[in-house]
């Protein structure tokens, strides 16, 4: 391609993505500066918006570190649960012949596309009955359950691409079916597994509705609900503070994407190579 065509293309793409870049830019700029009243040009650079990191922003709220810890526990427990169940359930669906297998497969596809928010009242009642309402544990279980159809479906795709002969060879070499799965098959789907782990971690990290409805108390607050509370409670909303917390909330996600880009692509690329 010639250089001129290149430049036109780059210009067009820049124009299209400019609004996004500007939004992200001001998210950062506003979090560390004070604009003129009614204007957008930063007047003065300061870190007061980031004060939530070292002081409590008001007495009723838990510290940001407590909330971050909650969010981390929520996201990683969800991810671990999803992965643990996906690698076993997907293997069964991919390789074992059991009754109602077709029913489970069809159910998976349906659940995958199901608007889960319509279940929220039923889930609420179930959690209250179990005594898990307003606890982190309850939200983790619900989130993991809702993420499972996606995880199982993805992992099934990875298992499907592992040749049967590897399994047959393992059995013929004298290994039990479980050992074959553990030592021969699981390593082949590792790329899918690590992508799913990251993916469901991020899904948990950014979850908002479930903690909001099912765990509204201060003890189980996560970053998403914390932010919501910051902007909703005050009579005079502090947008600078809100943006700084937003920045803080987004940083791990950006870091994860930068670090694990390649592995995440596996989910969309599908399958192992070699």
């Amino acid at each position: 391609m010639n250089t001129k065509g290149n430049w036109i293309l780059i210009l067009a793409l820049s124009l299209i993505s400019a609004p996004l870049v500007i939004m992200y830019g001001f998210q950062l700029i506003d979090s560390i500066s004070r604009p003129a009243p009614g204007g957008i040009i930063p007047q003065e650079w300061e870190l007061t918006n980031w004060r939530f990191l070292w002081t409590s922003i008001d007495s009723a709220r838990p510290s940001i570190w407590r909330v971050t810890f909650n969010t981390f526990v929520f996201a990683s427990s969800t991810a671990l649960l999803v992965c643990a169940f996906s690698i076993t359930a997907a293997y069964a669906l991919s390789r074992l012949n059991f009754s109602a297998r077709r029913f489970f497969l069809a159910g998976l596809i349906m659940l995958h596309a199901f608007p889960t928010i319509t279940l929220i009242i039923a889930i609420f009642i179930v959690l209250q009955f179990l005594g898990l309402y307003d606890s982190l544990m309850g939200v983790i279980l619900v989130k993991a359950a809702l993420e499972l159809p996606f995880g199982i479906w993805i992992m099934k795709g990875f298992y499907d691409s592992v040749p049967w002969e590897i399994e047959m060879a393992g059995v013929q070499d004298g290994a039990s079916r479980f050992r074959v799965w553990r030592e021969l098959i699981l390593p082949q789907v590792k790329p899918g597994l690590s992508a799913l782990l990251i993916f469901s971690f991020l899904a948990g990290w950014s979850e908002f509705i479930l903690p909001l409805v099912l765990a509204p108390g201060a003890d189980a607050q996560v970053l998403a609900t914390y932010m919501n509370a910051v902007i909703a409670d005050d009579t005079r909303p502090d947008y600078g503070l809100f943006k700084a917390i937003g920045m803080f909330y987004a940083l791990p996600v950006i870091a994860v994407y930068l670090l694990f880009q390649k592995r995440l692509m596996n989910i969309y690329g599908g399958g192992t190579k070699g």
Partner: peptide, 16 residues
């Protein structure tokens, strides 16, 4: 199959 004294070579070799 685990208990049969049999070695198998597959068409696609099925190496791990």
């Amino acid at each position: 199959p685990q208990d049969r004294p049999v070695g198998v070579v597959f068409q696609n070799y099925a190496l791990y």
